[in-house]
Amino acid sequence: MKIGVLALQGAVEPHVVALRALGATTVAVRNPTELALVEALVLPGGESTTMAKLLRLNELEEALAERLAGGMPAFGTCAGMILLASGVLDGRADQRSFSAIDIDVRRNAFGRQVDSFEADLDVTGLAGGPLHAVFIRAPFVERAGADVEVLATVGGHPVCCRQGRVLVTSFHPELSGDVRLHQHFLELAAT
């Protein structure tokens, strides 16, 4: 299975490294032609406002919306989670999100960079003990729909959610060298 990594801006390479370590074939996705090559997509961290603009400029917005509506498995971290959400709070008025998972997220919800942090998280269903998670100007989930499973929380706020074959995290599993969530996504995508 070919796994795409949205490569318009942000922390693309750490995802590619994690996926390749698990034996996946990866494709950098910047345009509709590259999107058509992949069966699942990782949306990395970065600036969600910049990515949303580049999706439009690169004429990728509609193609991505179509694939996500068609049930393509997707894994969004931080800005990627914001892009996959159904609602964005504290975003820009023109900020597009794709409603691939029924959650509303608040941008920069944990504060500014001086409030960014690392912590060990228990993730429901993840074997092997707590996951070391890195939160960078991170969003959290304000509302999770009835069909959404909340897999981890911080301070009562969901930070890792799953609905069907869509997985999202507020944090950056790609930065801490722990590939268990990537493994989980590959298994989800293969179902």
Binding site: G46, I136, R137, S176
Partner: peptide, 18 residues
């Protein structure tokens, strides 16, 4: 843990390509 090297470098990682 705030202000760790990973957290500091992490924001730079997010700015890549920008």
């Amino acid at each position: 843990s705030t202000g760790t090297m990973l957290v500091k470098r992490g924001l730079a990682e997010m700015l890549k390509g920008g």
